[in-house]
Design a protein around this nucleic acid. Structure first.
Lengths: 195, 195
DNA sequence: AATAATTTTAAACATACGTTCAAAAAATAA
DNA sequence: TTATTTTTTGAACGTATGTTTAAAATTATT
């Protein structure tokens, strides 16, 4: 069966995507080189082209992978049967823990319009929209159940996600506060905004 | 007197810095080319080197210029004799209006550690620290005067500035809400967090 | 073990961009 | 106007990096 080979190829692709994400976070889109992505895996840049059509394709798929991880996280939260307060708290914590521990891949999400084709951009924006809407749903549910104030959902969501996404700008693995502590504090203060 | 020439040179430098800021916002650090900076002013890239030593120097000074504008804004707020609520509200609004109307130069501030020399980096971090400390002072003043809750100053400041800085990621001149409306809403919700 | 399929390599190529420079153009001064 | 100084130009150069490719190395198959 050829699925063994296919599996092996898929695994390698995954490794490359993870390496790319790590470099992306550190260096930004333009600063990410094929050579550096390859070097992290002890390969040469040429072999990247056996797995991906070109740099844009690679970074686009990297983008998708990250978005899917995020979406998986929040979907679990949404589907749980907890109250809106716990859901929003969990969503915030989940986002921060992903953005800090998973090699802070979120930076890769910045300004996709600059680098992607129209088609790719649409897909990315669609996924982002889904992610935002999950937050909106949680907030709206809180309002409907009268545990949250009657806030403007979109504005509050923009504030919350903005503050979360900015963490990758200053977060340091070796800093004084752990991601866990940060996420707890963020959840506390951001919840105050809606209650 | 040679001050006429010097003045003219300074003016040209300013124009170049503004052009650089505009490109920086759109394209990011690595994506900003000397050619594009020059093209916006109907000049050739070669002439940039008559005014600046090199690209790094140009972008560094661009960075400084932006920081100074921001600092001027918040200094005025700090020095006013209003209460902490109004001060924090003003600081938030000021930041958003600068970040959106002044050709949203704030993007240029992202991840300076990747591009600057050690010396330049120290200067930038120093200015950033000053800016942050102004926010901290306002928050602390609010706590001391018992108009704010006893929040963790640093955490709250990180949340506030994070949410503000992220605006440039999605703000659109032609979008449904004006910068004025956005800044009002942000100030309202963020103030809820501390009161 | 021999053959075939696959993955990896290293070098070559193209291009984009930062930088330099000598000459031209423009501005100023005599 | 002529001479001098300042500013701009456009071409040239070097380097970094995305991409291609033919050959080598590795892995799988018979």
């Amino acid at each position: 069966m050829s699925s063994f080979r296919a599996q092996k190829m898929a695994k390698k692709k995954q490794e490359i995507l993870r390496s790319a994400a790590a470099v992306l976070v550190e260096k930004g889109y333009q600063g990410t080189t094929m050579e550096e992505i390859a070097a992290k895996l002890l390969m040469t840049k040429g072999s990247m082209y056996y797995y991906f059509k070109n740099k844009d394709d690679l970074l686009y798929q990297c983008h998708l992978m990250i978005m899917e991880i995020c979406l998986d996280g929040i979907e679990k939260v949404i589907e749980s049967d907890r109250n809106p307060i716990d859901k929003l708290r969990s969503a915030i914590k989940e986002h921060i823990l992903l953005a800090t521990s998973e090699k802070s891949m979120f930076m890769a999400l910045s300004k996709p319009n600059l680098n992607f084709s129209e088609e790719q951009l649409q897909e990315v924006l669609e996924l982002r929209k889904s992610y935002s809407q999950y937050f909106d749903r949680i907030i709206q549910e809180g309002i409907d159940k009268q545990v949250f104030d009657r806030v403007e959902v979109k504005m509050v969501r923009l504030i919350i996600l903005g503050s979360l996404n900015w963490i990758q700008e200053w977060y340091d693995q070796n800093g004084p506060q752990s991601a866990e502590e940060i996420s707890d504090a963020y959840a506390d203060y951001l919840l105050k905004m809606v209650m």
